[in-house]
Computed example of a mutant assay.
Amino acid sequence: MIRRGSTLERSLLLKFMHRTYQDLFPNEDFSHLEQTVKQYFSSDTPLWWVEEEGEQGAGSREQGAGSRGQGVGSRINNSIPNAQFPIPNSQFPIACLWVGNAIDQVHGNRHAHIFILYVVPEHRRRGIGTALMRYVEDWAIQRGDRQIGLQVFQSNKPALNLYNQLGYQTQSLWMVKFLSAEK
């Protein structure tokens, strides 16, 4: 089931963000993510959780922004290990989606921007990510958005494959150059 999260779930969102980045960069420190959540997480930036049907959550159950997002829980089970997260399995979501707002720099229109889409590894390749993406697309269409933006690491091949399969296209490249303070 997809459940709308609340701003009271800040710490759970932060745990999911840490796990997301630790999956990609296991030797890095992500203590700075707390500042990201403090700065951007609000009632204006919706958060959705995927939980097994029948679980009790802190928010209300969504009946779907459209028909494409329903029934996710029927294809998943609850086998996430407790090792990193002290929340009982029966209460721990298996996926999350956090969305904010952005402004298209070409046309000036507000649009949805995906901050995070994360499915715990034990539940990947079961259609959950695809269902969440379709869910957010329906949500964005209903609120009048004409596009959805996201940022994905070039090294995250599974995510790139998912987004390409769903019709997402590269519009711009975010380039970085690491600088040394030493001369």
Results as ranks from 00 to 15, higher is better:
177 K>P: 03
61 R>W: 06
77 N>E: 14
115 F>P: 01
135 Y>D: 05
170 T>W: 01
67 S>L: 13
130 T>P: 00
112 A>Y: 11
152 V>K: 03
59 G>F: 07
161 N>M: 09
181 A>F: 08
5 G>V: 08
165 Q>S: 13
70 Q>C: 08
2 I>N: 01
111 H>E: 05
104 D>W: 01
86 P>H: 04
66 G>T: 07
81 P>N: 11
97 L>H: 03
80 I>G: 04
26 P>Q: 09
115 F>M: 04
180 S>Y: 00
38 K>E: 15
156 N>G: 00
136 V>H: 04
110 R>W: 06
140 A>I: 05
17 M>P: 01
27 N>C: 04
82 N>Y: 05
94 I>Y: 02
155 S>N: 11
35 Q>P: 00
124 R>G: 01
60 S>G: 13
126 R>A: 02
87 I>A: 07
102 A>C: 13
43 S>N: 13
151 Q>A: 10
125 R>F: 03
119 V>W: 01
145 D>P: 04
18 H>W: 12
66 G>H: 05
170 T>Q: 14
103 I>A: 01
157 K>A: 12
44 D>V: 08
155 S>C: 12
6 S>N: 07
168 Y>P: 00
54 G>V: 04
14 L>N: 11
148 I>E: 07
103 I>S: 02
182 E>I: 06
128 I>A: 15
18 H>Y: 14
53 E>K: 14
148 I>Y: 04
43 S>I: 13
177 K>L: 06
68 R>C: 15
11 S>A: 15
121 P>F: 03
151 Q>I: 08
146 R>L: 12
162 L>Y: 01
75 R>Q: 14
16 F>L: 12
161 N>W: 00
42 S>K: 10
61 R>V: 10
9 E>G: 04
121 P>N: 14
105 Q>I: 07
17 M>I: 03
27 N>R: 08
79 S>I: 14
143 R>P: 04
12 L>V: 09
59 G>I: 05
111 H>D: 00
17 M>R: 07
180 S>G: 12
57 G>F: 08
90 S>N: 15
63 Q>K: 09
183 K>Q: 11
92 F>Y: 15
19 R>N: 11
151 Q>V: 10
131 A>N: 02
64 G>M: 04
66 G>L: 06
98 W>E: 00
